[in-house]
Design a protein around this nucleic acid. Structure first.
Length: 245
DNA sequence: TGCCATGTTAAACT
DNA sequence: GAGTTTAACATGGC
């Protein structure tokens, strides 16, 4: 169950199959899997929560959504949930309960790779311009917007806002310049902390606001509230986080 | 046990 | 037809 960093970890598991030929396909997709057989997996690219499998003659987009899961090597989960299985000479990759789509070259060529907060070409300046183009946008929505900050999700949103001391319903135009810069740097910083803690299986131990009841700084209550157009739960401290609007 | 959730899409509304 | 809301997906943790 994925935000961007989880997908970065998934990609590491998929790397051994780059350069290998697909010898068998499995699963149930809304396109014909048959023509994938025999193709080489040329590359794997990520944009936030999306994974692109670049084949010789097709591009497949995988999105794990909320409940999706994957395995590499051998498939062990119930076949009825298998959306896509690709078998290579050295093992397979299996994606369950997720979205699997064929992407045409045209739309693939228009992807803004610089929007991925974990990418080495992440472009916070460009993200800032996109944010400023939506002055009334609430920061809780900004941090869920996959066109602006691809890979950020509800956990990252809440933890970033706690770190920078800003309440989720603050708006972009009311945010002091320094806080905006803060937001852009912490969304990347926290994503890499997320990656580190996730790989150590200690992610939830490090939550300061998300799913918390007591503020670790002031000892006061953490407020839980559905916020923004994205209508996702926000967790925040009214004392240690300022509302700018 | 039952409820809720790291997310997006498409159907079903207005 | 547009914009908006709801349901679906179906697992795992508390």
């Amino acid at each position: 169950m994925p935000e961007g960093p989880t997908i970065v970890l998934m990609k590491e598991q998929l790397l051994p199959y780059i350069g290998k030929d697909i010898i068998l396909t499995q699963g149930k997709t809304n396109f014909d899997l048959h023509h994938l057989k025999g193709q080489t997996l040329k590359d794997i690219r990520l944009l936030g929560k999306q994974t692109f499998l670049i084949l010789e003659n097709a591009i497949i987009r995988i999105h794990l959504l909320m409940f999706g899961s994957y395995e590499t090597g051998q498939a062990t989960k119930p076949a009825k949930n298998l959306k896509l299985g690709l078998i290579f000479e050295n093992g397979g990759m299996f994606f369950y309960t997720c979205s699997v789509k064929l992407i045409d070259k045209e739309s693939f060529s228009h992807i803004d790779w610089e929007a991925d907060v974990m990418s080495k070409i992440w472009n916070p300046q460009k993200a800032k311009e996109k944010l400023l183009a939506h002055p009334n946008m609430m920061v809780c929505d900004a941090l869920m917007d996959q066109d602006i900050m691809a890979g950020s999700g509800n956990i990252i949103k809440n933890e970033v806002l706690f770190r920078i001391g800003v309440q989720p319903e603050s708006t972009i135009d009311a945010l002091p310049q320094a806080k905006l810069e803060n937001l852009l740097s912490e969304v990347r910083n926290y994503s890499f902390d997320f990656l580190k803690w996730k790989s150590q299986n200690t992610l939830s131990k490090h939550w300061q606001a998300y799913q918390q009841k007591i503020c670790p700084q002031c000892g006061g209550p953490i407020t839980k509230k559905i916020t923004g157009h994205s209508k996702r739960n926000s967790f925040f401290c009214k004392t240690d986080q300022e509302l700018y609007n």
